[in-house]
Amino acid sequence: AITFRFEGQEKAKKFYEKLMRQNLEATIHIHGDEVHVTVH
């Protein structure tokens, strides 16, 4: 698994949606202002 870190939720959401379109499995974790997107 690879984890990407984002400042702010907007960028993270766009990235997450892009992964979903590519049929990749990903989970999102929100830590205050920092958002972690883990790709499995």
Rank of each mutant, 00 (worst) to 15 (best):
F6N: 01
T3E: 04
Q22H: 10
H40E: 06
R21C: 06
F6G: 02
L24M: 10
K18P: 00
H31T: 08
K13S: 06
H40G: 07
Q22A: 12
V37L: 03
V35M: 04
E34F: 12
D33Y: 08
D33C: 11
Q9G: 08
A1E: 11
K11L: 14
T27W: 08
R21I: 09
V39Q: 03
V35I: 11
H40S: 08
I2A: 05
H36L: 14
K18Y: 15
M20N: 04
Y16H: 04
R5P: 03
T27A: 05
V39R: 03
V39P: 07
D33V: 09
D33R: 09
H29S: 14
E10W: 06
H40Y: 14
R21D: 08
F15L: 03
Q22S: 08
K18G: 08
V35T: 05
A12Y: 03
K14T: 08
Q9F: 15
A26I: 11
F6Y: 02
I28H: 01
H29T: 15
M20E: 04
N23Q: 09
E25M: 14
E25S: 14
G8V: 11
T3K: 06
A26K: 01
T38N: 04
H29I: 11
E10N: 05
H36I: 14
D33E: 10
H36R: 08
F6D: 02
D33L: 10
E25R: 14
E7S: 13
E34A: 07
R5T: 10
E34R: 06
L24A: 05
F6V: 02
R21Q: 13
K11N: 11
Q9W: 15
T27D: 07
K14D: 10
H36P: 00
M20V: 11
F6H: 01
R21G: 08
L19H: 01
R5W: 11
I2V: 10
T38K: 07
A1M: 12
Y16A: 06
R21P: 02
A1I: 12
F15P: 00
V37M: 03
F4R: 02
E7Y: 13
A26N: 01
L24Y: 12
K18D: 12
T3D: 03
V35Q: 01
F15Q: 01
I30F: 11
A12H: 02
L24N: 03
T3H: 06
L19S: 02
D33S: 12
Q9M: 15
L19M: 09
E7L: 13
A12C: 05
Y16W: 10
H31Y: 12
A1L: 12
A12I: 02
M20F: 04
K14E: 14
F4T: 03
T27H: 08
K18T: 11
T27G: 03
E34G: 06
M20L: 14
H36N: 04
H29F: 11
K11D: 15
F4Y: 14
I2Y: 08
T38C: 04
F6W: 02
H31I: 13
E10I: 07
M20G: 03
V37N: 00
E7Q: 13
I30H: 07
E25I: 15
T38W: 09
A26Q: 01
E34D: 05
D33M: 10
F4D: 02
H36E: 05
E25C: 13
H40N: 08
Y16R: 02
Y16F: 11
V39G: 02
R21K: 13
R21F: 08
L24V: 13
V35L: 03
E7V: 12
K11P: 13
F4N: 02
K13T: 10
D33Q: 09
R5V: 15
T38H: 13
D33F: 11
E7G: 08
V35K: 01
F6T: 02
F4W: 09
F15V: 02
K18Q: 13
K13E: 12
K13A: 09
I2G: 03
F6I: 03
F4P: 01
E34P: 01
E25T: 14
A1G: 11
Q9A: 13
I2D: 03
L19N: 01
E17W: 06
K14G: 05
K18C: 13
Q22P: 01
F4I: 08
E10Y: 07
L19I: 09
T27M: 05
G8S: 15
E10M: 06
H40M: 12
H31S: 10
I28Q: 01
A26E: 01
G8E: 15
I2R: 06
F4L: 06
F4V: 06
E7K: 14
Q9K: 10
E25D: 13
F15N: 00
E10T: 05
I30N: 06
R5S: 07
H36C: 07
K18R: 10
V37W: 01
H36D: 03
I2F: 09
K13V: 12
G32S: 04
V37H: 00
K14L: 13
I28Y: 07
I28A: 02
E10R: 05
E17R: 05
F6P: 01
H36V: 12
E7H: 13
T27P: 01
G8I: 10
Y16P: 00
E17L: 08
G32P: 04
I30S: 06
F4A: 02
K14M: 10
A1S: 14
I28V: 07
I2W: 10
M20P: 01
H29K: 09
F6A: 01
I28T: 01
K13L: 15
R5D: 03
V39H: 03
Q9N: 10
V37F: 03
I30Q: 08
T38V: 13
R21S: 13
E17A: 07
H29Q: 11
N23H: 11
N23K: 09
K14R: 11
Y16T: 02
E7F: 13
